[in-house]
Design a binder for these strands. Sequence first.
DNA 1: CGATGCTTTGAATCTCGTCAAGATGTGTGG
DNA 2: CCACACATCTTGACGAGATTCAAAGCATCG
Lengths: 231, 231
Amino acid sequence: MKTLPLDVDQYALRNKATLFKTLSDQELEAIANIAQHKSICAQQYLLTQQTPAESVYNLISGMALIERTSSMGERQILAFLFPGDFVGLTNSEHFEYSVKSLSDLHLHEFKRKALMELADRTPHLKENMQKIGANVLSRALDQVYVLGKKRADQRLCYFFLHLLERMPGASADKILLPMTRQDMADFLGLTIETVSRSLSKLKKENVIAFPTPQHLEILDLASVEELGKMD
Amino acid sequence: MKTLPLDVDQYALRNKATLFKTLSDQELEAIANIAQHKSICAQQYLLTQQTPAESVYNLISGMALIERTSSMGERQILAFLFPGDFVGLTNSEHFEYSVKSLSDLHLHEFKRKALMELADRTPHLKENMQKIGANVLSRALDQVYVLGKKRADQRLCYFFLHLLERMPGASADKILLPMTRQDMADFLGLTIETVSRSLSKLKKENVIAFPTPQHLEILDLASVEELGKMD
DNA sequence: CGATGCTTTGAATCTCGTCAAGATGTGTGG
DNA sequence: CCACACATCTTGACGAGATTCAAAGCATCG
């Protein structure tokens, strides 16, 4: 269990709000003692709407998505999860969403009770957890704004900027997309065809390029920022 | 715009997640000791994007809205606030939104630090605050789903059900709307014309009626539920 | 009363969704 | 290495739904 804290992270530690930021070695070890390693293959469900909400998870490596599917089969992706992200902080008895892996995942699993108790004794940890919660809400509100006000091409540019900011190793000239077009569509409140058409339009305007369908390149970052900005 | 007759405490106490639920008299008194009364007239800003986030507020009576306005003048309403609601729980230095009153407001103001400290010593209070936070997020995710997947008439029905559930004194045959059509549009990601047209359509289908423009009556609750349901 | 602000309606336009087909990739077995 | 099959992605044509711009209806309030 000593292996813990530090395989997380050259990425997570440089990220803004992460569970482990600014913690002392002792504090990190205390967390390590209640953490369990967990691995999941690509395209598997980490948890679903029916799962009792006893555990919370910290994503070490890989990518995942949070989705909600209605009884009529309508799927809305509520968020994508990146290394360092935290998922499962709810206060209901069971989760209100499902979490599905996009790639092989490594995570830390915590019993919620144990983590909460530790947080009570570890101010820095509690502060980090609150920050993470605030960020989750803040991003959900951003998404509300985008879905309420933006056209398809603008939503996609917002999405690119989102990836650029949050995805480890992403740079304007090389963004690897682990999600399908359908995932993007369900995240942005569009259909797969509209996503595809908007991508083609941006391609034709030389704003972006696709060396392969999963490999995005931003050619004109200024335009992307203009289209996708939030303020 | 007329102000709403609101029976505050009666509503707040029967509501699910409120700051004061299940607290003992002693605990309530401890809260009272750090609370300050505040009153605001209709159509005023309680706080704005620029306000430093030092205080949090608990709404006693009246209604308000949370909005975000972009540099291009696009406004998105992120939530409506009802008696018992809590606003201001963020972890950034300043707020990421503005709060505007729809009617005359009475609220409790707490210094964030003081409330946090008290919460540390008062498990019930902390639990209530966490529940409120979870509810806020849950509703934001509902809104993402609605904006991503629903037609104009469905969004309106969702909104009606939302009001029915949360607004004090609302019943199917009498819902007083303190907000304008523009507010509804900005909440639901529509234009005011689309809101008006959709309302007219629902009126023509005898699903709803408007004795006056601010007085909504649901004639066919089953249809409203079918159109506005979330699952 | 008229004046103002909010709401509704109308017509033209645009964006996006739907349905259908075609193209491109990826993986497998020969 | 090629050929085929399957999945994903792209494109096209059309229609539904929402926005835009403009004008007309209704309240409310001096």
